[in-house]
Design a protein around this nucleic acid. Structure first.
Lengths: 216, 216
DNA sequence: TCGCACATGTAAATCGTTACATGATTAT
DNA sequence: ATAATCATGTAACGATTTACATGTGCGA
């Protein structure tokens, strides 16, 4: 009952609003549907759902499988109210946590193979999540997949993640090629191709800002 | 002296490897150069740098401004060693934390205006960071900007963030238009345009996977 | 000279993770 | 029957954030 609900609390409450679940099912579902945008450990979820009960947003009922207990959770009317109230508030902005890029920023303290490894490891990780996400979408277009009346929402997120993954993977290819072409990882500075790329990026930004100003 | 250094420890150590800084300058520099990929609060940095000293990776010297103390930090040879060792290990995969998308996933528990606000607020946040990043790059191409011999590294990160921001902003436009076109936020399901978009995404993934298999 | 923003931290609270533990189920 | 894996948590630890506090310099 202490402290306020966090964003993670509402995330879980939102899952309960769709359906009642056992704690373990909640961890599966959270992993399946939210991990790409809101990554939390499974152990955290076991704790968080108890807090929901403490606030009166969910009820717990214990079932029994053989000699072992398990807990099923369901949302309460107060929980639905709280969820709706939260949904009416504005979200925090996106946050990226990309250790591979951090390492690239510091790459001149190591050697070229370190920088290349950072890029390749990052690419592998994205390739894996991208593939998992796409398999889920394949199920949906084949008429499979849970809660088909919610596909329009899931599909919106999937399209974003696919765009993100494509951008990230393309960037990995470019970055790897460029690092490979450096004589060394230190002291390269502003080469002509780099200057050109930056100018392109700036021009693209300016075009967008200009378009935005024209609207209204 | 307790517990192991975290990724954030090494991030800070990497900054010290470039240059000695006062604690406050460290917070400024971390915000300027790392926040987009490794966001940490400024207060955290004050604590973290003391831990670096505890491990013998940095030394602290206190200066004085009027009646007020301030602390300057510098990396030690042991710190450089530790940093190089860390750079030789593989990074964790990228993590996204996008509350706006989380809200969209749960959007059928609220109403259409909630979903639209989630998208618009997200777009505003990205627009702001994108602009700040671009202004830094503008300084670099004009020959301004700190540590010009490191521009090749910074530019690589900038190109990624620009690509990310473009993808995210484009997606925001698409999402807003699509949500706007829904009669209601609930029960829409798999419409024909949505199915088409998903199939396109899957095909794009398959093409990429095919290309990847052809290499080697 | 008053107030406000910048500079420089500290302490407490807490969100979240890692490590552990144990019952049930399935494959071999 | 045994090993491995799935299911279902708990408890401790620690990384990070939020809130607070105070000095300093500058503009009105």
């Amino acid at each position: 009952m202490p402290t306020e609900p966090t964003t993670s609390s509402y995330a879980l409450l939102g899952l309960l609003a769709i359906h009642p679940w056992t704690a373990y099912d909640l961890t599966r579902q959270a992993k399946r549907s939210m991990r790409l945008f809101w990554p939390r450990s499974e152990a955290h979820i076991y704790g968080e759902v108890k807090r929901l009960v403490g606030w009166g947003y969910a009820t717990a009922s214990t079932e029994r499988t053989g000699n072992r207990e398990r807990t099923a959770y369901a949302i309460t009317p107060a929980g639905r109210d709280a969820l709706r109230t939260w949904l009416a508030t504005p979200p925090a902005g996106p946050q990226l946590e990309i250790e591979g890029l951090l390492r690239l920023l510091l790459a001149d303290q190591g050697d070229k193979s370190d920088a290349l490894r950072a890029v390749r490891t990052t690419r592998d990780a994205v390739t894996t999540s991208y593939g998992i996400g796409i398999e889920q979408m394949r199920a949906y277009v084949e008429g499979d997949g849970p809660f088909p009346d919610r596909v329009h929402l899931v599909a919106l997120l999937a399209r974003f993640y696919a765009d993100f993954a494509e951008a990230m993977l393309d960037w990995c290819d470019v970055a790897e090629a460029e690092i490979d072409a450096w004589p060394d990882v230190r002291g390269v500075g502003l080469t002509e191709p780099t200057r050109h790329a930056l100018e392109e990026a700036i021009a693209r930004y300016d075009r967008r800002a200009h378009r935005a100003r024209q609207m209204t």
